[in-house]
Design a protein around this nucleic acid. Structure first.
Length: 545
RNA sequence: GCGCCUGUAGCUCAGUUGGAUUAGAGUGCCAGAUUACGGAUCUGGAGGUCGAGGGUUCGAAUCCUUCCAGGCGCGCCA
């Protein structure tokens, strides 16, 4: 929030001088320098303009700065030029101190943006309803949900959607597998189909089914029946798996109902046809994606008459576009990256604005136990579901770790290192800061606060903490723009660390009521930011722990 | 073979979209801190040719290019 004020002030100052009126202020941006000695904010404005006009950047910076100094008010403490042409600004302490009031007034809204009337659809998880969610889906779920929270905090109207793949060959196979399990329990011989679902969990489902339904009924039922029983069951289980993680969806898009039974697929096919995007070859139908940015064409209708997964996906995305979102975010596993170019090509063919379509690719998580990779050991029985993982680790830790790296890096989840009480538990560190603050606030004898007392927060540590708090706004908008929740995780760790150090060096509950008051206001501001930040990650912030 | 992602301290990772003599954090290692509000905390130290070479410019971990290494994907499966 400070940056905008500063830029405005600079523009206002310079606009009053004839020689600067023509400057392109859209190039004026601020950054916070790494080195504290360089002030609170810097701009490379002079460097950029000078290189365009081919003049000496240092001279330009000097000219600009002397103009700024002529007009500067109490807002700025210092404005200086540094080689080769940076202009550095130091803001007055008072400005910082007084902003604490704003943080406290805004409370859980601090860091958020006003509603911008833009609608976002974010699709994530979308695991097939053929089993329980496992660790592979977890990172996707955590990242998707955090992005959703961040966007919504940033003013977007967000819809979380789960694409339910409840149709097609795999679902038929699932039905056959369940039927085979059921028949076996009923004492009727029926072979497991080739490539069928072998998992024990289907046996469990079969048991439930045989106690609920009559034998005669089950033996008469078609595959379709078993398919729908199974998909209904797993859909419910998936919802249950997500519940303890605090993840829920506004919309469940059923492939079966919303694409096939509704005949929506045919509509999109006709649309493709009307754009002259389809041709026949080898007894199948192909889409001309190669003419719209992909490197080859793809089959959309197989020679057996069924549509391909890809065709269904085209229809699904056409549907997303028809629902008129301003932004469509797909959180996909990295193994689907090749689908991006062909999907974009197809959407181009349908003349949609594909710049609205964004992708977040999630790299795989490697599970490590005793220095061994356990993520791939489905066969050996150490196949880890979300249910299993949550028995060992709490949801806060799991969610935090899953978003704590940028999603396009591979990431090791080391069981041994992540035991709840270990020092590798960054969540604790952050939550602990909040709990400490809370306990101090409780002990405070003051029943009334006067915000004028913030002026007594004069120590460097205190001013730096305020700067860090104000930075939260920027971090939120950065992570929204980049769809990158990990930025918030890193920020919170830094903030917690700075608080712990302050706590250690400075006693808050002092005799002097005014100083006490100032510090309490600071602490309560820190608490606000910690809680708001943790919320964006779907992590709780307990008062006691 | 082609495409995408990754390569930064012993390990796990950040690095503000090209910015400022000294490239950061956690962990691990070494050495310290409590008659204070929660020690599950804090302070200090050692540790790097940013995978390698070349290029672009005032300025490169960041952009371009070649190469090396790892992961993933290249179906009329979903």
């Amino acid at each position: 929030m400070l940056q905008k004020d500063i830029i405005k002030k600079i523009e206002n100052y310079l606009n009053k001088e004839k020689e600067f009126v023509n400057l392109d202020f859209s190039k004026l941006s601020l950054f916070t320098p790494k080195n504290i000695a360089h002030g609170d904010f810097s701009t490379n404005f002079a460097l950029i303009i000078a290189s365009e006009l081919k003049i000496n950047p240092n001279e330009l910076a000097n000219k600009i700065t002397s103009t700024l100094l002529k007009r500067k008010d109490k807002f700025f403490d210092k404005i200086e030029v540094a080689k080769p042409g940076f202009i550095n600004f130091t803001i007055s302490k008072e400005v910082y101190q007084n902003l604490l009031k704003r943080i406290n007034q805004l409370g859980n809204k601090f860091g958020s943006s006003k509603k911008n009337k833009k609608r976002v659809l974010i699709e994530f998880v979308s695991a097939n309803p053929t089993g329980f969610l496992h660790v592979g889906h977890l990172r996707n779920a955590a990242v998707g949900d955090s992005i959703s929270r961040i966007l919504s905090f940033s003013g977007y109207e967000v819809t979380n959607e789960y694409y339910l793949n409840d149709y097609g060959g795999q679902i038929k196979l699932l039905g056959e597998s369940l039927q085979s399990r059921v028949y076996k329990i009923l004492g009727v011989d029926k072979e497991m189909p080739e490539g069928g679902y072998q998992g024990e969990y289907l046996v469990d489902l079969a048991k439930i089914l045989t106690t609920k339904k009559e034998k005669r009924f089950l033996l008469k039922s078609e595959i379709k029946y078993f398919s729908s029983v199974a998909t209904d069951y797993f859909t419910k289980e998936i919802k249950k798996d997500l519940e303890p993680l605090n993840i829920s969806f506004d919309s469940w898009f059923s492939e079966k109902k919303d694409i096939h039974e509704s005949r929506y697929l045919d509509k999109v096919k006709r649309l493709l046809d009307s754009k002259n995007g389809i041709y026949f070859q080898d007894n199948a139908e192909w889409i001309k994606t190669s003419e719209f940015g992909d490197d080859k064409d793809w089959v959309i209708k197989k020679s057996d008459g069924n549509s391909t997964y890809f065709m269904n996906d085209i229809a699904y995305h056409q549907n997303k576009f028809e629902r008129e979102f301003d932004l469509i975010v797909n959180v996909w596993g990295a193994d689907h990256h090749s689908h991006i170019s062909r999907l974009k090509a197809s959407m181009n063919l349908l003349s949609n604005q594909t710049e609205k379509l964004l992708f977040v690719l999630i790299q795989f998580v490697r599970l490590v136990r005793d220095n061994k990779d356990v993520s791939m050991s489905k066969r050996s029985g150490t196949y880890t579901t979300i249910k299993d993982l949550l028995k060992e680790f709490d949801s806060d830790l799991v969610r935090f770790l899953m978003i704590s790296r940028s999603s396009d890096t591979h990431f090791d989840f080391d069981f041994d290192k992540c035991k709840s009480n270990s020092e590798e538990n960054p969540v604790f560190y952050i939550q602990y800061a909040n709990a400490r603050i809370n306990s101090i606030l409780k002990k405070s004898p003051l029943d009334k606060w006067n915000f004028k007392n913030v002026l007594l927060l004069n120590e460097d540590k205190e001013i730096n903490l305020i700067k860090r708090l104000l930075n939260f706004t920027e971090i939120v908008s950065e992570s929204a723009e980049n769809l990158a929740p990990h930025k918030i995780a890193f920020y919170l760790q830094e903030l917690a660390s700075e608080f712990h150090a302050y706590y250690k060096s400075t006693k808050v509950l002092v005799e002097d009521d005014k100083i006490l008051n100032g510090r309490l206001i600071l602490l309560s501001s820190i608490k606000i930011v910690l809680i708001n930040g943790l919320n964006l990650l779907g992590v709780s912030s307990p008062d006691k722990m």
